[in-house]
Computed example of a mutant assay.
Amino acid sequence: MSEEQAEQQGLQVRIAVKKVSEIAAMPRPKIVGDPRGIIKFVVDARSEKILGAALMHVDSQEVVNLVALAMRQRMSAAELRDQIFTHPSSTEALNEVLAQLG
């Protein structure tokens, strides 16, 4: 679900977004020489559940499956944020991006 779709449904949302080139905890794109892209999460402000995400970066085709699983299991943004991910990998970025939500 996009930010706009959530707001159209009357949901209050919190947004976590960061450019891949600015994510210190995401070495994989720099290692392969392609730090382009963004990671964005749309989170329900009340329940803290992840409503949607935009993943546009190296290895996003793999990271999206992890995010989709978290959403199907109704994990909170904090639960996903607090996971330990393999190093170096693109999943490491989830810790840093979701930390913006507090």
Results as ranks from 00 to 15, higher is better:
S2Y: 13
S2E: 05
S2Q: 05
E3A: 06
E4R: 10
E4C: 03
A6R: 07
E7F: 04
E7T: 15
Q8K: 12
Q9W: 09
G10Y: 15
L11S: 01
Q12D: 11
V13S: 02
R14H: 10
I15P: 08
I15R: 06
I15S: 00
V17P: 03
V17F: 14
V17G: 05
K19I: 03
V20F: 15
S21V: 14
S21H: 10
A24K: 14
A25F: 11
M26H: 08
P27V: 00
P27S: 08
R28M: 08
P29T: 01
I31G: 06
I31L: 12
V32I: 14
V32Q: 08
G33W: 08
G33F: 07
G33H: 07
P35H: 00
R36P: 12
R36D: 13
R36I: 11
G37E: 12
I38P: 08
I39M: 14
I39E: 06
K40Y: 14
K40G: 01
K40C: 02
F41A: 00
V42W: 15
V43Y: 01
D44I: 05
R46H: 13
R46M: 03
S47I: 06
E48S: 15
E48C: 13
K49W: 12
K49G: 03
I50P: 13
I50T: 02
I50F: 15
L51S: 00
G52H: 07
A53V: 03
A54W: 15
L55Y: 15
M56L: 12
M56D: 07
M56R: 09
M56K: 14
H57W: 04
H57Y: 12
V58F: 15
D59A: 08
D59C: 09
S60C: 12
S60V: 09
Q61D: 14
V63L: 05
V64P: 14
V64D: 03
V64C: 09
V64W: 02
N65C: 10
L66T: 15
L66R: 11
L66V: 15
V67F: 05
V67Q: 08
A68T: 15
A68C: 11
L69G: 02
L69E: 09
A70L: 10
A70C: 12
M71H: 11
R72W: 04
R72C: 08
Q73I: 14
Q73P: 01
Q73M: 09
R74F: 02
R74Q: 13
S76W: 11
S76E: 01
S76V: 00
A77N: 02
A77R: 01
A77C: 12
A77K: 05
E79L: 04
E79V: 00
E79A: 07
L80I: 00
R81Y: 15
R81T: 00
R81N: 05
D82V: 02
Q83W: 02
I84N: 04
T86R: 03
T86C: 06
H87M: 02
H87Q: 05
P88R: 06
P88T: 01
T91V: 13
E92R: 06
A93F: 15
A93M: 09
L94Q: 00
N95C: 09
N95L: 04
E96I: 04
E96N: 12
V97S: 08
L98G: 01
L98W: 15
L101V: 03
L101H: 11
G102D: 01
